[in-house]
Design a protein around this nucleic acid. Structure first.
Lengths: 162, 162
DNA sequence: TATGAAAAGATGAAAACTCATATTTTTATT
DNA sequence: AATAAAAATATGAGTTTTCATCTTTTCATA
């Protein structure tokens, strides 16, 4: 065996010691989140919506008449983008803007009848999908994850609630 | 109390029974993932990189010389976008393309010395940040989450490994 | 009650992203 | 070996997204 060959055996691709990503919380979480969501997101597109639009519907389903800033935080959408998403969903008749009487800077977003119907359907489909997804996972992995992220969500969103 | 008032008490904003999102796994996971990552992503931008670029560096740090398709899967970046991100990082001297001798369709991406240095720094900072993040969380929440997503990542990525 | 700071949304322009598809190379089939 | 199908990457063009900034309205306080 040549000196070069030995060197290559002892100095792998890159990485000194342990690989980083398989032990990095933020990567694992993002990756798991994306992988789990993929399937339902595909379904959402099938229904003629983009993922952010689905998030808006879901947020309003839970709490209709939110103002844009709050909606943006919950739906994880940057404000100016959300403004334009709302323009578009408004044109499509899914929701409507109403200016807030008490604070005229605010614009409150309400689902139309059609929007509420679509939201209700998708929410119901999402619940069913989650059930299947969790069943498909081995052990109590799904339940474990859900319990943990629920607690975490509470912790991380404390203080910035509205 | 008027009939109207009673009706309003019984029929809240939208939502019939339980709110959906606070009990929806995919939302909770995405939301927690985004919230936890925010801080470090901000740091990454401070260092002059976008998040997808940081993901590329991290992937190559662990496994240098990957082909574009594989890198795209791991870094959760659409292929044609990754091609252009690589163009750009190449121009900036962070990495370089080398065509694969054995299969000339493939382009393998290697970190330059500068790129490897930057990757190593950021990986080290990411590890430190994760430590702090986990410490900040109450109970063993951080550890719980990490253990769970690690198991899940294994399950979800089985079969599509390379 | 003026006045400056902050909050909410909207918007123009630039940058980034996506989609479909082209090109090159390899693999599988006949 | 020829040919069709598949895989890997690149690219044009259209759409989205972002960033900074503007306007309007409210809040704090001197």
């Amino acid at each position: 065996m040549t000196a070069k060959a030995v060197e290559e055996l002892e100095a792998p691709a890159t990485s000194d010691a342990q690989p980083f990503l398989p032990d990095y919380l933020l990567f694992l979480t993002a990756s798991v989140s994306a992988a789990m969501s993929e399937e339902f997101h595909e379904h959402v597109r099938t229904r003629g919506l983009r993922v952010p639009e689905w998030r808006v519907l879901a947020c309003l389903h839970d709490d209709d008449g939110q103002m844009i800033t709050r909606l943006a935080r919950f739906a994880m959408i940057e404000q100016s983008r959300l403004t334009r998403i709302i323009d578009n969903m408004d044109e499509r008749g899914l929701l409507e803007r109403r200016s807030d009487k008490a604070d005229r800077r605010r614009v409150r977003i309400f689902l139309t009848r059609a929007g509420a119907g679509l939201a209700a359907e998708l929410v119901s489909e999402a619940r069913a999908h989650e059930k299947r997804l969790i069943q498909r996972l081995p052990d109590g992995l799904g339940q474990d994850l859900k319990a943990t992220v629920k607690r975490l969500h509470g912790v991380l969103w404390d203080g910035e609630q509205d």
